[in-house]
Design a protein around this nucleic acid. Sequence first.
RNA 1: UCCUCAGUAGCUCAAUCGGCAGAGCGGAUGGCUGUUAACCAUUAGGUUGGGGGUUCAAGUCCCUCCUGAGGAGCCA
Length: 480
Amino acid sequence: MPAGRFCATIGLYRGEAMGWTTIKQIFSDHERLLNRELEVRGWIRTQRESKNFAFIELNDGSCFKNLQVVYGDSLPNFSAAVKYPLGSSLKVTGTLVPSPAAGQPFELKAEKIEVIGLSTLDYPLQKKRHTFEFLRTIPHLRPRTNTFMAVFRVRSLLAHAIHSFLQERGFVYVHTPIITGSDCEGAGQMFRVTTLDLRNPPRDEKNGIDFSQDFFGKETNLTVSGQLNVEGFCLAFNKVYTFGPTFRAENSNTQRHASEFWMIEPEIAFADLADNMQLAEDMLKFVIRYVLEKAPQEMEFFNRFIDTSLLPRLQHVLEAKFEHVTYTRAIELLQKADMAFNFTPQWGGDLQTEHERYLSEKIFQKPVFVTDYPKEIKAFYMRLNDDGRTVAAMDLLVPDVGEIIGGSQREERHDVLKRRIVEMGLKTEDYEWYLNLRKFGGAPHAGFGLGFERAVMYLTGMENIRDVIPYPRTPKSAEF
RNA sequence: UCCUCAGUAGCUCAAUCGGCAGAGCGGAUGGCUGUUAACCAUUAGGUUGGGGGUUCAAGUCCCUCCUGAGGAGCCA
């Protein structure tokens, strides 16, 4: 049968019960299922054959583990089956029996092996280790590998964990717009959204581009943050959050940056910076605990093959109280450090990556909140402290990943906020609606942004953001 | 965007001073009665990222472009 043709009868989806047994069910209920006749459906991960018998490692996606299928030359299609290429999808019926060999407690002794979809000999995934770089060239196939099946299951669980944590605490999920009409969100370069003919755009009287003829009648872009929008909902619902895609057109080429990524932005009213940090710490601990509980096989795999210090480190984070240090104190600690930095730590300057790493990995060796940065290096909406020089901002630095959370208490005083907008060289008319939130019953409020992919990296030990996004988008790369 | 490194068989890599382009894995063929990245034997497989240049001779040296990785900046 040629590849791409289907021959076996396809079962219908029947809700939770699929009409056949999943490998997950077999692993969780193998004592009851032993010596029973079962049907499974999955893909050949690997196959080993001898003269009169053969083994297939079958994975059906229901769980991390493979099911060993054993079959002999009593099957009429034995000689054909040993040549089914890796990746082929099968329907196997047989009896679950105890395995006589070490390596697996049980196996499926096949009585019938039917091809659902044959693969071909040029299937790119081989019975050997592949580099992540190579697997990035086949993002549509890499979920069929151990590592990526584990990564993307954890990614899914982590998303659920975040929703669970926030929903259980009464947070309202707000879908802030992805297309934004304001170019003033203040977080980097944006992707333009337009239906104008780029080869021949309409011109205005100054020979500029006439955006009044564009789809929305003005310039529009993809969002770089939902924060400003969600603040309006925060001052109605009190506890709110966004969780959606975010787009940055920065030409960033690092392991930690992507052009399209997901971000979680909780925002709480009648709250200050300390409440904000407590929320961040509780949330991070909750989701770590959740993923460890729901994906023990995957996490064990990461700890064994990706990062051997992963589980001890996560356990340590669960037990530790996160550190808190002011920016001013952090600069002092860095200046006293017995370490030759490429950039000398100096009050008023940004913390360099090397400084952040030194703080979280050497001095504290656990997650650390750095707070109260100089107002000049932070966004206009962050609340001005009483000293007049710093703002109520916080960054959470974690070992190995770096900045995973950035947040602040927001400036709730109308006059101070207006002054800060002017000081930062921004136009007050662009922020009229935002200032109005302070005018019509404002309240102290605070929030933060959690980079979802960075959290996935932190929980899995994966070092490159391109390996925790199904189809990553980075500069010069938007294939598939 | 800047700095550094890399690109050779399907994959992972080697090729000494510029001198016949190789190995392992994967594939094919055969063998093997319990394999676990199975094992043993045989075998096929190449526009050395693209373009240009130097040279009797270029995978190797020079120029240029493309792609990838690591670091920096920006940030989540």
